[in-house]
Protein backbone atom coordinates (compact mmCIF):
# COMPACT_ATOMS: atom_id res chain seq x y z
CA UNK A 1 0.00 0.00 0.00
CA UNK A 2 2.90 2.23 0.68
CA UNK A 3 4.13 1.39 -2.82
CA UNK A 4 2.12 4.01 -4.67
CA UNK A 5 2.77 6.49 -1.89
CA UNK A 6 6.51 5.97 -2.11
CA UNK A 7 6.58 6.30 -5.89
CA UNK A 8 4.59 9.49 -5.53
CA UNK A 9 7.03 11.35 -3.35
CA UNK A 10 10.10 10.08 -5.15
CA UNK A 11 8.81 10.66 -8.69
CA UNK A 12 10.70 12.94 -11.05
CA UNK A 13 7.85 15.42 -11.35
CA UNK A 14 7.04 15.42 -7.69
CA UNK A 15 7.75 19.13 -7.30
CA UNK A 16 5.60 20.19 -10.19
CA UNK A 17 2.52 22.17 -9.27
CA UNK A 18 -0.19 19.62 -8.47
CA UNK A 19 -2.74 21.93 -10.04
CA UNK A 20 -1.10 21.38 -13.42
CA UNK A 21 -0.90 17.63 -13.05
CA UNK A 22 -4.46 17.41 -11.79
CA UNK A 23 -5.68 19.62 -14.61
CA UNK A 24 -4.13 17.32 -17.17
CA UNK A 25 -5.48 14.15 -15.56
CA UNK A 26 -8.93 15.66 -15.06
CA UNK A 27 -9.22 16.73 -18.69
CA UNK A 28 -8.22 13.27 -19.87
CA UNK A 29 -10.77 11.61 -17.60
CA UNK A 30 -13.53 13.96 -18.76
CA UNK A 31 -12.72 13.38 -22.40
CA UNK A 32 -12.72 9.63 -21.87
CA UNK A 33 -16.14 9.83 -20.34
CA UNK A 34 -17.87 12.12 -22.81
CA UNK A 35 -16.39 11.06 -26.14
CA UNK A 36 -18.15 7.96 -27.40
CA UNK A 37 -15.34 6.14 -29.20
CA UNK A 38 -13.01 3.43 -27.86
CA UNK A 39 -10.07 5.08 -29.61
CA UNK A 40 -10.19 7.83 -26.99
CA UNK A 41 -9.64 5.38 -24.16
CA UNK A 42 -6.82 3.71 -26.01
CA UNK A 43 -5.23 7.07 -26.70
CA UNK A 44 -5.58 8.03 -23.05
CA UNK A 45 -3.89 4.85 -21.87
CA UNK A 46 -1.02 5.41 -24.27
CA UNK A 47 -0.56 9.07 -23.40
CA UNK A 48 -0.89 8.64 -19.64
CA UNK A 49 1.20 5.50 -19.60
CA UNK A 50 3.95 7.24 -21.53
CA UNK A 51 3.88 10.30 -19.33
CA UNK A 52 3.90 8.24 -16.14
CA UNK A 53 6.89 6.21 -17.27
CA UNK A 54 9.02 8.75 -19.15
CA UNK A 55 8.08 11.99 -17.48
CA UNK A 56 7.32 10.72 -13.99
CA UNK A 57 10.06 8.12 -13.91
CA UNK A 58 7.84 5.30 -12.66
CA UNK A 59 8.95 1.82 -13.88
CA UNK A 60 6.73 0.35 -16.59
CA UNK A 61 5.91 -2.91 -14.75
CA UNK A 62 4.63 -0.87 -11.82
CA UNK A 63 2.44 1.25 -14.06
CA UNK A 64 1.07 -1.90 -15.68
CA UNK A 65 0.37 -3.61 -12.40
CA UNK A 66 -1.39 -0.58 -10.96
CA UNK A 67 -3.49 -0.25 -14.11
CA UNK A 68 -4.69 -3.81 -13.70
CA UNK A 69 -5.52 -3.37 -10.02
CA UNK A 70 -9.25 -3.36 -10.73
CA UNK A 71 -9.07 -6.06 -13.36
CA UNK A 72 -11.33 -8.37 -11.45
CA UNK A 73 -14.10 -5.81 -11.09
CA UNK A 74 -13.80 -4.96 -14.76
CA UNK A 75 -14.02 -8.58 -15.78
CA UNK A 76 -17.10 -9.29 -13.71
CA UNK A 77 -18.85 -6.04 -14.62
CA UNK A 78 -18.18 -6.51 -18.34
CA UNK A 79 -19.63 -10.01 -18.15
CA UNK A 80 -22.70 -8.39 -16.64
CA UNK A 81 -22.92 -5.88 -19.48
CA UNK A 82 -22.24 -8.27 -22.34
CA UNK A 83 -24.47 -11.16 -21.38
CA UNK A 84 -28.24 -11.15 -21.11
CA UNK A 85 -30.17 -13.91 -19.40
CA UNK A 86 -33.76 -14.82 -20.09
CA UNK A 87 -36.22 -17.65 -19.74
CA UNK A 88 -37.43 -17.31 -23.30
CA UNK A 89 -35.55 -17.25 -26.56
CA UNK A 90 -34.12 -13.79 -27.23
CA UNK A 91 -35.35 -11.60 -30.10
CA UNK A 92 -33.83 -11.74 -33.56
CA UNK A 93 -30.38 -10.26 -33.92
CA UNK A 94 -28.96 -11.88 -30.78
CA UNK A 95 -26.40 -14.65 -30.57
CA UNK A 96 -27.45 -17.07 -27.92
CA UNK A 97 -26.74 -20.26 -26.07
CA UNK A 98 -29.23 -22.34 -24.16
CA UNK A 99 -28.29 -23.96 -20.84
CA UNK A 100 -31.21 -26.03 -19.65
CA UNK A 101 -34.14 -23.62 -19.16
CA UNK A 102 -31.95 -20.52 -19.37
CA UNK A 103 -31.04 -18.54 -22.46
CA UNK A 104 -27.73 -16.69 -22.44
CA UNK A 105 -27.43 -14.18 -25.24
CA UNK A 106 -25.58 -11.18 -26.46
CA UNK A 107 -25.79 -8.83 -29.40
CA UNK A 108 -23.68 -6.39 -31.29
CA UNK A 109 -24.86 -3.43 -29.24
CA UNK A 110 -23.85 -5.04 -25.96
CA UNK A 111 -20.47 -6.07 -27.32
CA UNK A 112 -19.83 -2.59 -28.66
CA UNK A 113 -20.82 -1.09 -25.31
CA UNK A 114 -18.50 -3.47 -23.50
CA UNK A 115 -15.65 -2.50 -25.78
CA UNK A 116 -16.28 1.16 -25.14
CA UNK A 117 -16.53 0.59 -21.38
CA UNK A 118 -13.28 -1.32 -21.20
CA UNK A 119 -11.32 1.27 -23.14
CA UNK A 120 -12.95 4.14 -21.30
CA UNK A 121 -12.29 2.57 -17.89
CA UNK A 122 -8.67 1.86 -18.70
CA UNK A 123 -8.19 5.35 -20.11
CA UNK A 124 -9.65 7.13 -17.10
CA UNK A 125 -7.85 4.81 -14.69
CA UNK A 126 -4.55 5.47 -16.44
CA UNK A 127 -5.10 9.19 -15.91
CA UNK A 128 -6.01 8.73 -12.26
CA UNK A 129 -2.96 6.51 -11.74
CA UNK A 130 -0.75 9.11 -13.39
CA UNK A 131 -1.88 11.50 -10.72
CA UNK A 132 -1.58 8.97 -7.91
CA UNK A 133 1.90 7.82 -8.89
CA UNK A 134 3.49 11.20 -9.51
CA UNK A 135 1.85 13.43 -6.91
CA UNK A 136 2.22 12.94 -3.16
CA UNK A 137 -1.05 12.80 -1.28
CA UNK A 138 -0.16 15.84 0.82
CA UNK A 139 0.19 17.91 -2.34
CA UNK A 140 -3.25 16.84 -3.51
CA UNK A 141 -4.78 17.73 -0.16
CA UNK A 142 -3.00 21.06 -0.36
CA UNK A 143 -4.54 21.57 -3.79
CA UNK A 144 -7.98 21.02 -2.29
CA UNK A 145 -7.11 23.61 0.34
CA UNK A 146 -6.20 26.06 -2.39
CA UNK A 147 -9.56 25.31 -4.02
CA UNK A 148 -11.15 26.46 -0.79
CA UNK A 149 -12.49 23.10 0.34
CA UNK A 150 -13.58 23.21 3.98
CA UNK A 151 -10.53 23.49 6.30
CA UNK A 152 -12.12 20.97 8.67
CA UNK A 153 -12.13 18.44 5.87
CA UNK A 154 -8.57 19.25 4.81
CA UNK A 155 -7.35 18.86 8.37
CA UNK A 156 -9.20 15.58 8.75
CA UNK A 157 -7.57 14.24 5.59
CA UNK A 158 -4.11 15.27 6.77
CA UNK A 159 -4.61 13.64 10.16
CA UNK A 160 -6.01 10.47 8.58
CA UNK A 161 -3.15 10.27 6.13
CA UNK A 162 -0.68 10.58 8.98
CA UNK A 163 -2.38 7.95 11.09
CA UNK A 164 -2.99 5.40 8.35
CA UNK A 165 0.66 4.49 8.10
CA UNK A 166 1.18 4.44 11.83
CA UNK A 167 -1.77 2.08 12.21
CA UNK A 168 -0.70 -0.17 9.35
CA UNK A 169 2.72 -0.35 10.92
CA UNK A 170 1.18 -1.25 14.26
CA UNK A 171 -1.01 -3.82 12.58
CA UNK A 172 1.99 -5.43 10.95
CA UNK A 173 3.83 -5.69 14.24
CA UNK A 174 0.87 -7.15 16.08
CA UNK A 175 0.31 -9.67 13.28
CA UNK A 176 3.97 -10.69 13.42
CA UNK A 177 3.80 -11.20 17.15
CA UNK A 178 0.64 -13.26 16.74
CA UNK A 179 2.07 -15.34 13.96
CA UNK A 180 5.19 -16.12 15.97
CA UNK A 181 2.85 -17.67 18.51
CA UNK A 182 0.92 -19.72 15.97
CA UNK A 183 -1.92 -17.23 15.84
CA UNK A 184 -2.72 -18.12 12.23
CA UNK A 185 -1.95 -21.81 12.27
CA UNK A 186 -5.58 -22.96 12.02
CA UNK A 187 -8.68 -21.33 10.55
CA UNK A 188 -10.24 -20.94 13.97
CA UNK A 189 -7.09 -19.39 15.39
CA UNK A 190 -6.95 -17.05 12.39
CA UNK A 191 -10.46 -15.79 13.12
CA UNK A 192 -9.62 -15.20 16.75
CA UNK A 193 -6.32 -13.55 15.96
CA UNK A 194 -7.90 -11.24 13.38
CA UNK A 195 -10.49 -10.14 15.88
CA UNK A 196 -7.89 -9.58 18.57
CA UNK A 197 -5.70 -7.74 16.10
CA UNK A 198 -8.47 -5.36 15.11
CA UNK A 199 -9.52 -4.66 18.68
CA UNK A 200 -5.92 -4.21 19.79
CA UNK A 201 -5.48 -1.82 16.87
CA UNK A 202 -8.54 0.10 17.98
CA UNK A 203 -7.20 0.56 21.50
CA UNK A 204 -3.78 1.41 20.10
CA UNK A 205 -5.31 4.01 17.81
CA UNK A 206 -7.32 5.51 20.62
CA UNK A 207 -4.35 5.70 22.98
CA UNK A 208 -2.18 7.22 20.28
CA UNK A 209 -4.70 9.93 19.76
CA UNK A 210 -4.64 10.67 23.48
CA UNK A 211 -0.84 10.88 23.59
CA UNK A 212 -0.84 12.94 20.48
CA UNK A 213 -3.30 15.31 22.11
CA UNK A 214 -0.77 15.94 24.88
CA UNK A 215 1.98 16.61 22.37
CA UNK A 216 -0.31 18.98 20.48
CA UNK A 217 -1.13 20.91 23.63
CA UNK A 218 2.53 21.17 24.53
CA UNK A 219 3.11 22.98 21.25
CA UNK A 220 0.39 25.50 21.86
CA UNK A 221 -2.56 24.05 19.96
CA UNK A 222 -5.94 25.44 20.98
CA UNK A 223 -8.29 24.39 18.24
CA UNK A 224 -7.67 26.57 15.22
CA UNK A 225 -5.21 25.22 12.78
CA UNK A 226 -3.01 27.21 10.45
CA UNK A 227 -0.94 25.59 7.76
CA UNK A 228 1.94 27.03 5.73
CA UNK A 229 1.25 26.91 2.00
CA UNK A 230 3.63 24.57 0.16
CA UNK A 231 5.63 25.79 -2.79
CA UNK A 232 5.94 24.10 -6.14
CA UNK A 233 7.59 24.46 -9.51
CA UNK A 234 5.30 25.86 -12.14
CA UNK A 235 6.22 24.81 -15.66
CA UNK A 236 4.63 26.63 -18.61
CA UNK A 237 5.40 23.74 -20.96
CA UNK A 238 2.86 21.62 -19.14
CA UNK A 239 0.09 23.72 -20.69
CA UNK A 240 1.42 22.90 -24.15
CA UNK A 241 1.56 19.24 -23.23
CA UNK A 242 -1.99 19.33 -21.91
CA UNK A 243 -3.18 21.04 -25.08
CA UNK A 244 -1.48 18.40 -27.22
CA UNK A 245 -3.06 15.57 -25.28
CA UNK A 246 -6.52 17.14 -25.37
CA UNK A 247 -6.39 17.86 -29.09
CA UNK A 248 -5.21 14.36 -29.96
CA UNK A 249 -7.96 12.79 -27.85
CA UNK A 250 -10.59 15.03 -29.43
CA UNK A 251 -9.38 13.97 -32.83
CA UNK A 252 -9.48 10.32 -31.84
CA UNK A 253 -12.98 10.82 -30.56
CA UNK A 254 -14.40 12.53 -33.58
CA UNK A 255 -13.19 10.54 -36.54
CA UNK A 256 -15.97 8.54 -38.09
Amino acid sequence: MSQIDRYAYTSRIRHLDPAQKTGLAALVIILCLILPRPAVGVGAVLWMGMLTVWWGGIPLPVVGRVLLAEFLFLLLAVVGVVLSFSWEPPPVGFWSLQLGPLWISTNQGSLALAGLLVSRAFGATAAMNFLALTTPFIDLVDLLRRLRVSPVLIDLMDVMYRFVFVLLDSMGRIATAQQSRLGYATRRAAWRSSGLLASRLFVDAYQRSQRMQTALASRGYYGDLRVLPLDYRHDGRVYLLTAAVVVSLLLAGSRA
Partner: peptide, 8 residues
Protein backbone atom coordinates in the same frame (compact mmCIF):
# COMPACT_ATOMS: atom_id res chain seq x y z
CA UNK B 1 5.34 8.74 16.50
CA UNK B 2 3.38 10.33 19.32
CA UNK B 3 4.60 13.79 18.41
CA UNK B 4 4.59 13.91 14.63
CA UNK B 5 1.01 14.53 13.74
CA UNK B 6 1.18 16.44 10.48
CA UNK B 7 1.28 14.86 7.08
CA UNK B 8 4.63 16.34 6.04
Amino acid sequence: DDQLFSAS
